[in-house]
Design a protein around this nucleic acid. Sequence first.
DNA 1: ATTACTGCAAAGCATTTGCAAATGC
DNA 2: GCATTTGCAAATGCTTTGCAGTAAT
Lengths: 154, 154
Amino acid sequence: MSGDQTKKEHVAGDHSADEAWPLFVEFLRGKESRITQARRIVFDRVFARHDHFRADDLAAELSSGPDHVSRGTVYRTLDLMTQAGFVQKIRDQEVHAHYEHIYGHGRHHHLICEDTGEFVEFSSKVISDEIDRICKKHNFTQRLHRLVVFGTKV
Amino acid sequence: MSGDQTKKEHVAGDHSADEAWPLFVEFLRGKESRITQARRIVFDRVFARHDHFRADDLAAELSSGPDHVSRGTVYRTLDLMTQAGFVQKIRDQEVHAHYEHIYGHGRHHHLICEDTGEFVEFSSKVISDEIDRICKKHNFTQRLHRLVVFGTKV
DNA sequence: ATTACTGCAAAGCATTTGCAAATGC
DNA sequence: GCATTTGCAAATGCTTTGCAGTAAT
């Protein structure tokens, strides 16, 4: 294992949720939204996990047991937490699979404007070389990579 | 408009489909699969488009009219074309949204092993700097970027 | 008390699948 | 003629939503 691989060793009763919670409270107050039990439960569970997770899994996890929170509320809370910047949705914008034909195209990447939906394609040898280097370092055989930049065209 | 933005000026009766078709035929033969009308229609339509498209849109487009092909067949053909390397699915692997909490985490990217599902996180200043440079060049204000590398861990 | 939030179950929606009929070989 | 593929419609699986009841302010 390569030394710089991000390690995530956290104890179960991680207290980062406790640290972060007041910030979420502030965020909710700012939106005239309420501080509820269900939101606290979801918030804690998100911070108890230190991996990527699916909204669906979290919802399933919380659908039974003492800290019961319904599916709908889990999704709604996750959305709030995303707005507040506590979680990131790994696949924002792209709700469904998109395709493009690549015959005769070079591999390229996209700048996607969140206002208009326009996109600009670009490619960069600097980036592909760097990715090659990183893969080599991690003994990883690359099949393809994908880079998307979200923002706004000024 | 920036000069190097990829322009895609193609005439309607683009002939790249005709050029590429024999290769697809070869691919299908190699799999003992059949060369059918429906496949040809989908193939042509994909090449007639020069933008990103959704499988669903294409299916809707082909669900009526003279060149009728059913939804199921569109999806199945798109899958074959992906295997054959004529199209790329912009969002492969990730069928549903994943989340991760980012409080206290630096922005990072992932190498995802397609065999085991394992992933390695990494970050690279070289890459973020290059992206900044490209955004600047295109007068683009970046909100976030996402980079994923698919492959196998050896 | 008022208003937002929750739980539930139903609706949505892209995608997949089963199966009888059609088509390619 | 036989096997694969198609079309259709039903099923799937995640996500969203409407609404009546519940909790927060």
